[in-house]
Write a protein that binds this DNA or RNA. Structure first.
Length: 507
RNA sequence: GCUCCCAUCGUCUAGCGGUCUAGGACGCUGCCCUCUCAAGGCAGAAACCCGGGUUCGAUUCCCGGUGGGAGCGCCA
């Protein structure tokens, strides 16, 4: 559990200003000059407008891994400046997802809504230094401008109408604040995954940093936060690549050198289309509810856009030891649900049964089963571990261990619970009743010897037995199944099956 | 429309000028194992988007095309 979920765990603006920003960056620079590695600090900064998306989870993982790999710090920041769309439920969903995945953060969660004073302070500073200005253009003018530019096949952007007005709003007059973007020159983003990307300042316009009501906008809060928090490496989705030059310009206007950027490509659905709620499970909690183990999801995520030679299986520790931003693929990748399933099965069958049992419990509970009513859950997990792709599947297969079959699967019963098999079952029951030690190897021997003595194939013996105890034609190996079930329960279920056969044939 | 990004089997990817008759993994097909279902083992089909350069030599470098994606908000 994270101990830092208190909403009040936000540093006072003053303190942040003193401990972050230019100071941290210069300190890092000095470290580098002195041959010391700069202390890495990464962040994950979701906006709480929905659940923790699979793409977001991967960005969080990459940021987490990079920080851990370099002995740095990992920060969680909630970008909730959009009061309209941000919800407390979404915040909880994100926190819950992070916890489930085991991505623990060293600082935060910080909430941007708690830092408005700080943003206003920086806006005031920019205004005073003539690096920003009030813009009084009515929305209609902006709309018209955009239309005209589009008609001229130009990229719509603000024309700087108020840039040199040098005017301050009168009481009651509304105005936004715009950043004075450089008019010429270029901005170079030395991106760790995309390479060197050059933007002309003429392509950029003077973006709004404060709305009419004085509240700060995204591109501005990000910049202030990354500066104040001393973020050294920004790992985020490549949909932000186009925002980067603007942010770098603001950062420099503030007297700070930008952090290192790494823009990771997006994740597409299995058809190569943009992920949407409709195209299937896209949230981390949905994967959890569908019966996936967190380590499987993590392993799947890390291999999406990143590779280390031919290795497919990575524990969290291995990821930390091997992860590097430079190995991130520049191209977008599509989800492959089948591979996630394969990984999940891998972890189900190779993880400690106690660990699997812990994650299995809730799924059993939702089937109305209390493991206290039957065999030890660990044993059941061991028996089923090689035949379940998800925990939901495993829970379903586990039901018969805790609940005697209320009825028999029709096709299986028609073939295996018949007048012909009844005597076989009855005789086998007596053999089993006499077994000394109720363990799989002994049961195995007993069943095999019985089949030989009766001159029957094993299938003619094991299968009726299986249907009798499990109610269906599929279960773990019969010896293991009986061992876990216990002798009393096994015999009772054979008796019930025998009675059932009698009823079917006797009429 | 403008700017930017991307391009190896169906999918995830290895490859960082010759080692490529392009490797691994998921999935798929076949066989083996087998008391069911799985798991496992073995084998197989399956890719360098197209066109120009650069080079003795391009999957690898450059340019163009095509295709896909992102951004261009008082959203984040």
């Amino acid at each position: 559990m994270n101990s830092s979920t208190a909403p009040g765990a936000v540093n006072a603006p003053g303190r942040l200003a003193a401990s972050g920003g230019a100071f941290a960056t210069i300190a890092g620079l000095l470290d580098q000059l002195a041959g010391q590695p700069m202390t890495v600090k990464t962040r994950f900064a979701p906006s709480p407008t929905g659940y923790l998306h699979i793409g977001g989870a991967r960005t969080a993982l990459f940021s987490y891994l990079y920080a851990r790999r370099h002995g740095g710090r990992f920060v969680l920041r909630i970008e909730d400046t959009d009061l309209e769309r941000s919800t407390p439920e979404a915040v909880n969903a994100i926190l819950e997802g992070m916890t489930w995945l085991g991505l623990d953060y060293d600082e935060g969660p910080f909430y941007q809504t708690k830092r408005f004073d700080r943003y206003k302070e920086v806006i005031r500073q920019l205004l005073e230094q003539d690096k920003a200005y009030y813009c009084f253009c009515p929305k209609e003018r902006i709309d018209k401008l955009r239309e005209e530019q589009m008609a001229r096949k130009e990229k719509p952007r603000y024309d700087g109408h108020c840039r040199d007005l040098g005017r301050v709003p009168q009481p009651g007059e509304e105005a936004v604040v715009r950043f004075k973007n450089p008019l010429d020159g270029e901005v170079v983003v030395d991106d760790r995954v995309k390479g060197r990307v050059v933007f002309q300042n003429t392509e950029l316009d003077d973006l709004v940093i404060a709305r009419g009501d004085g509240s700060p906008t995204y591109n501005f809060t990000v910049v202030v936060d990354d500066m104040d928090m001393g973020i050294t490496h920004v790992i985020r989705g490549d949909d932000h690549l186009n925002n980067t030059p603007r942010q770098m310009n603001i950062l420099r206007a503030l007297g700070v050198e930008p952090p290192v950027y790494a823009h990771v490509p997006m994740i597409l659905d299995e058809h190569g289309k943009k992920l949407s709620k409709r195209t299937g499970a896209a949230s981390v909690t949905e994967y959890r509810d569908a019966g996936f183990l967190p380590e499987a999801v993590l392993n799947y995520l890390v291999r999406l856009g990143w590779a280390h030679g031919d290795q497919e299986i990575f524990s969290l520790d291995e990821m930390v030891a091997l992860f590097d931003i430079d190995d991130i693929n520049a191209a977008a990748s599509s989800l492959n649900p089948g591979k996630l399933l394969w990984l999940n099965q891998h972890y189900i069958k190779t993880s400690d049964p106690r660990h699997v049992a812990r994650h299995l419990s809730p799924h059993l509970a939702s089937l109305g089963i209390d493991p206290a009513d039957g065999p030890a859950l660990e044993q059941v997990v061991e028996a089923l571990s090689e035949r379940a792709k998800t925990l939901v599947e495993m829970a379903q297969s586990a039901v018969f261990f805790y609940r005697a079959p209320a009825e028999y699967e029709e096709k299986a019963a028609r073939k295996n619970l018949t007048a012909e098999t009844a005597p076989v079952l009855a005789a086998l029951r007596e053999q089993l009743a006499g077994v000394g030690e109720w363990t799989a190897p002994v049961i195995h021997d007993t069943v095999h010897r019985f089949a030989e003595a009766q001159e029957l194939g094993l299938g003619k013996v094991a299968q009726p037995l299986r249907v009798a105890v499990s109610g269906g034609s599929v279960s773990p190996p019969i010896d293991k199944t009986l061992e876990v079930l216990g002798r009393d329960e096994t015999l009772a279920r054979i008796d019930r099956a025998l009675a059932w056969i009698g009823a079917q044939n006797g009429g």
